[in-house]
């Protein structure tokens, strides 16, 4: 059963077609990479999937429910988690408050499943190795730590689908390993992950499948190895070789 599927999803802004009939489906527990050159519409697609932009045509199904008309907060409450490229944490809050506010924003029935929100917050910070900094402001963290906090917070709030926008951007090489371990743990937990990344070796290492987006359309799809060696990928990124 696909956890997320789109059917002919299109988006037009000011007469410009940003997404063109994007159709795909993702099975529960998969890690899917979304790659493509700058301006191809990757982040826009995430914005549409998480409800921040309203698509002009097509349909989005999450867990077999049409969520096309559902607001962004409601989609989050249904189980779609978003990790932003520029670190979507609240820098003026402490680490503890960052996790706590996410747990408090869950719908009543999901909040009821967590016995003690403060205890859950503590466990989450321990899980990502930041428990000793619980009372510090999030602005004091490094890029990698901010990323761990954001993913950890999303995990703690019981999301089923994770939309990760360049999770290794602005993260040191050492912390990149920590982030990729955390993403693997998400898979082990049966979570579904969709990742936008420019780092192709990272994508090849972690993903089950890859979609290549170009000028708003999915133009290539397959396992990471076959996509990485497909001659069309080079053309998408660097243009067609005129000597061929």
């Amino acid at each position: 059963m696909p956890i997320l599927s789109t059917n002919s999803l299109s988006l037009e802004i000011n007469g410009q077609q940003i997404l063109k009939e994007v159709s795909f489906s993702i099975e529960k527990g998969e890690i899917v990479g979304l790659i493509g050159p700058n301006g191809s519409g990757k982040t826009t697609l995430f914005n549409v999937l998480s409800g921040f932009l309203k698509h002009t045509d097509g349909k989005i199904d999450f867990e077999e429910t049409d969520i096309s008309e559902v607001s962004a907060p409601k989609r989050a409450q249904m189980g779609i988690g978003r990790v932003f490229q520029n670190f979507g944490i609240f820098r003026e809050m402490t680490l503890e408050e960052n996790v706590l506010v996410a747990l408090e924003s869950l719908p009543k029935e999901k909040r009821g499943e967590i016995n003690n929100l403060k205890e859950k917050t503590k466990e989450t910070l321990e899980f990502i190795g930041l428990a000793n900094r619980a009372k510090e402001k999030a602005s004091s963290l490094s890029g990698g730590q901010m990323r761990l906090l954001e993913i950890g917070r999303t995990l703690a709030s019981g999301k089923e689908l994770f939309l990760l926008d360049e999770p290794t951007a602005g993260v040191s090489p050492k912390m990149t390993n920590d982030v990729s371990s955390l993403i693997r743990e998400l898979k082990d937990d049966g979570k579904t992950v969709m990742i936008i990344e420019h780092d192709l070796p990272f994508i090849a290492q972690i993903c089950d499948r890859v979609f290549v987006l170009d000028v708003g359309s999915i133009v290539l799809e397959g396992d990471p190895q076959s996509v990485q060696h497909d001659v069309r990928l080079k053309e998408i990124y660097f243009g067609a070789d005129p000597t061929n």
């Binding site: 998480s50 409800g51 921040f52 607001s71 962004a72 907060p73 409601k74 989050a76 409450q77 988690g81 978003r82 932003f84 979507g88 944490i89 609240f90 820098r91 003026e92 809050m93 408050e97 706590l100 506010v101 996410a102 408090e104 924003s105 869950l106 719908p107 917070r153 999303t154 709030s157």
Partner: peptide, 22 residues
């Protein structure tokens, strides 16, 4: 919880909405 949620919205509306704050 209300105090934290309104602060989250003030700091970044999209980030706040992405965790389910209305």
């Amino acid at each position: 919880s209300f105090g934290r949620q309104i602060s989250a919205l003030a700091e970044h509306e999209w980030y706040a909405k992405s965790i389910g704050i209305s």
